[in-house]
Amino acid sequence: MSDLAIQLTGVNKHFNYFDLKDINLELPKGQIMGFVGANGAGKSTTIRLIMGLMQADSGQVSVMGMNMPEMQTQVKQRVGFSSEEMKLYGSKNLGWHIEFIKSIYPHWDDKYAKELLGRFDLNLEQNIKQFSKGQHIKAQLLLVLARKPDLLVLDEPTTGLDPVARQEVNQELALILNDESRTVLFSSHNTADVEKISDQITFIDRGAIINTDNKESFLDNWKRIQLELPSTHPLTPLGSTINVEQDGRIASVICNQFDEAVIEAYKQQNIKVHAADNMTLEEIFLANVNYRRAGEKV
């Protein structure tokens, strides 16, 4: 048995105006991965490849140790997948949808479904077409969660939700943390949601994975260092610096492999280090993207 819930190796997919390039991704079982990228970065395409809805031009996709898309029926039996574009049947109510999904998944948990119904404040009898966008997303999430899947794949689960609904959904995702056998991959362009509950974080931009690491390493390794230089002469950055901004004798440097030695090295050069600030995931993501894009232009 493989310990990886998801494994993509050298996956490529070509479209007319977009290419997914050499995607390598591993998600160990029991972990939560946040998949972050701008709109159109390739998040949904990657997720479609993982779900076997699309065939890669080259490379290998394996989910729960099974090859995709060949084993899609077996895999989808154990995976709860929900995406932004999915719609339920407007002329039917949630109760009808629950009966339909329940008939397909033998592990359906009625008690859990009832709890979710209460916590999400959803009405069983009301037709789906009368649901607000938030209610619609929550209804779909209920249908996915109560199947008790081993792997949850959620494409933009909180996009378009109002703050109240977003909190409800985030709280529900947090409750999943309690179960160590469950793996979650969720994509978002909202870094605040991702930052809180993810163990692993993967950044994707323009069809390529630009960084993947565990969250604590991300937050530890990336720092913004505030410097005071001895002269207005342009600063020669030290260590693995990915961004330098200087105005007169004040400089701000973003470093992606921070350790104390960097500070010492600056001090040796007679540079005053005012602070080494933590960065939010959003700042790290943006710095990362800008750095890569600048590199592509060169």
């Binding site: 809805l53 029926t73 574009e85 999915m86």
Partner: peptide
């Protein structure tokens, strides 16, 4: 067109089914 097929595609089935 109304994306209910997207919902169906996530269920344990393939194109033949």
């Amino acid at each position: 067109k109304e994306d209910q097929l997207s919902f169906i595609m996530g269920l344990p089935l393939n194109v033949t089914d």
